[in-house]
């Protein structure tokens, strides 16, 4: 059996030119060229370009995440609240989630897995899967909840503060 040799017909070429994949490739190439062009243009003013080591930022953000989880699971909501940025959008919603769940759940354990980080200038987005085990009050029934969340941490003069949550909140009921 001889192999099929693709032929280049006008119709096939037109379909390829209109295909979504080609448009995506062209679009992405255009974006990359634009970004490279921005960097290659002559700059005018020197500015401190060095960022803090990513190593340290990632460890700091993960440490803050662990501290927040431990404070919550240890039934210390007031301590956990100190790690939420005052300007965080929906801060009070999160605080009330914590207080309500702590009132109805005992022996809370939150385990994290598949932890990954995206690191910016003093900002780290930590992505993780979580599992929350607890005893449901009043019958002390063992329960398991799971989800996936992104916590965005920002380093400030007061230390690491949580500025945003996306996905499933481990602090909810």
């Amino acid at each position: 059996m001889s192999p099929t040799i693709p032929t280049c017909s006008p119709g096939r070429l037109a379909r390829f030119c209109l295909s979504r994949r080609l448009r995506f490739c062209l679009h992405r190439c255009l974006q990359c060229c634009a970004l490279a062009w921005i960097c290659l243009l002559p700059g005018a003013q020197a500015q401190g370009a060095a960022a803090p080591p990513a190593f340290e930022l990632e460890q700091g953000a993960r440490g803050a995440l662990n501290t927040l989880i431990v404070a919550y699971a240890g039934n210390q909501p007031l301590l956990a609240e100190t790690m939420l940025d005052e300007a965080m959008i929906g801060r009070q919603i999160l605080v009330d989630q914590m207080r309500t769940s702590l009132n109805q759940q005992a022996q809370i354990q939150v385990s994290l897995r598949d932890v990954r980080s995206s690191i910016g200038d003093n900002v780290v987005a930590v992505t993780f899967s979580w599992e929350k085990r607890f005893l449901q009050i009043p019958a002390m029934t063992p329960m398991l909840r799971s989800g996936r969340a992104i916590f965005m941490w920002q380093r400030s003069a007061q230390g690491w503060r949580l500025v945003g949550i996306s996905g499933d909140s481990p602090f909810a009921l």
Binding site: A36, C39, G43, A44, Q45, A49, A50, S118
Partner: peptide
């Protein structure tokens, strides 16, 4: 990163 530019590839934020 230089005095007036910065470019990163990979996990960016």
């Amino acid at each position: 990163a230089g005095p007036n530019y910065q470019i990163s590839v990979g996990d960016v934020m």
